[in-house]
Amino acid sequence: MNSTTNTSFISPRKILIIAQSTVTQLVRMKVFWFLAPIALLFLGLQFFDVFWYEGPEASQPQQELQMHKNLCLGTMMLFGSLFAIVSTALLIPRDIEDRTLYTILCKPVPRLDYLCGKLLGVIFVIGVAMLVMDLLLVITLHFRTQEVLGEMDGFLESLGWPDDVVAQKKADIAAHGPTLTLQFGVLAHFFKAAIIAAVALLISTFSTSTIFTIATSVLVWIIGALQSIAREAFLNDDTLGESTSWAAKILGTLVSLIFPDFQVFEAVADAAARASEIMAADMIKIAGLAFFYLGIYTVLSWFVFSDKEF
């Protein structure tokens, strides 16, 4: 008998091979074309004055910049998440339907490696898409900030305010430009999209159709976004007696375990849009949370997938 190479439980090389093939697959499915309309949207915003913006005399000249950021970040969040759901939901059920999976699992590829590879590939593509959108955002925002600053310059000078007040005013505006804080917001949306991809991965391991996977993932996404509101309403419901309130609490905890809680990510992204300071500690916290969710959903997916028959 010749030497049998031991296939370890999880092999980074095989994960990378699967991830690479997933990226190729998505790229050749021309998914990056969806960036074209987004680019147009971002550029279009550039030439579009917000209707309530009243010129440099307004008390809040930053509003124009904030509006731009809100729209762009919102678009990135929406497209990032939808992209995560749709592409993940398309990949695995399709491999099963096309029986491509047979041929892959017949090679010495552990099932966990296959799942991790698929997820990694999708997350990589989301990352690239986010980066492109981020770049567009930074460029358009940069020009817009320059424009507002230019307008302010003339206006503040005509008022004849002391220099330090003018400098403060300008610094306030610059804080609404393309800053590191803004990047934190983008990162929060990226984490969110990655988690949504992991949720879609889990659902696609037991669902039998693409459409079910997409619909359920969108539902989880919405529940995740509304979760804390729902939980509060549930826990504060007085019609539930004393004795049932602990049951409600358990249920609430259960919901928060099953569905990802996106509130923290939303909070960071909101703070970024408002240009309020974000602590590095907060970023580490959400990064940790994101990895925690990714890990949980991947392990759950693997539990379902390892017993699956084809």
Partner: peptide, 29 residues
């Protein structure tokens, strides 16, 4: 998984990734 190191399998009505070329498919496996 180790039992699959020494096996090649051709399933009935095989389908592979349509977006890969013939050579890329063999290379992938």
């Amino acid at each position: 998984v180790d039992s699959r190191n020494d096996v090649g399998f051709l399933p009935e009505n095989p389908y592979f990734y349509k977006h890969l070329t013939g050579a890329e498919t063999v290379r992938f496996y």
